[in-house]
Amino acid sequence: MTEMMFQDAVREGLAEEMRRDPLVWALGEDLSTAHGGTSANQYLGLIDEFGPKRIVNTPISENTIMGAAVGAAVAGTRPVADLRMADFGMCAVDELVNQAAKIRYMFGGQARVPLVVRQAIGVRKGAAAQHSQSTEAWYVHTPGLVVVAPGTPADGRGLLKSAIRSDDPVVFMEHKDLWGATGEVPDDEGVVPLGKASIVREGSDLTIVSWSRMARLAEEAAEALAGDGVSVEVIDLRTLWPWDKAAVYASVGKTGRLLVAQEAVQVGGFAAEIMADVTEACASALETHVRRIGAPRMPVPYAEPMENEYRVTPARIVAKAREVLES
């Protein structure tokens, strides 16, 4: 194991895949400059090893970054398209949703679209309404797409590898506030399979399901609840589609209580899907009705007190967990 920052671990994962498969390449704005991706140096140094044909510094042309990735994927390569943030990813939703997600199906299975689109999600302090959004539910709703939202450096690296090896398009959503987070990363290949959750804390009274950075906050909440003698099981889904129903059902079978925590706006969010599914599938195991927690339905505000109003915090998770436990 090696202690690594998220951004470095994911870059390592990409580099390892690029060494393994010469048809893997990356495209996006600012990828090959001395910053190596202005957001968090996720491509730093890769230009030196792989050159400008495989680390492609693009114009500011989101539609073509995405569209070119789709075209290059159906033509037999494995592009990693970097749209920097989910907010700018919206500029290319058409190419992703109308093309990438549907080509295999629409053309009767003649073609595959093995691409990865990286678009970071989440609130980073003071980034406000157009640089903070969590849009994972949009893509979970879209048939044809795999959606990944890792919450640790090891999962970031391991899931990027699986995403690159996937023959279906994968939306890879990193949390901006995780880029600098550190964690243990395995020294071996460390591939993390798509669709497999990770039980990050075992418990018997309540299951909290979450993903991305919110899974880390759920762990904090579980720790606080442990101080009061409550035993919480925390599941980090890691992949949102397809999500690991077996792991969640098994946990709910054990605890009988479920809370789903997400950073995104609660209304119409992915937590609602998990709640509905578990309610249908695990009715007899549930001791009380399932709850969820997500952000109020507002654009992300700028000033600190208002920004905090948007945030799902460990304290708010604890309060919601108590509601579940006391009912």
Partner: peptide, 23 residues
């Protein structure tokens, strides 16, 4: 600093704001 409650203003006319229970 602005009051946190202002975060709920100007989202849109229709529909109730979703407010944290403690607030």
């Amino acid at each position: 600093f602005p009051d946190a409650s202002l975060a709920y203003q100007d989202v849109q006319d229709l529909g109730p704001p979703e407010i944290w229970p403690e607030n």
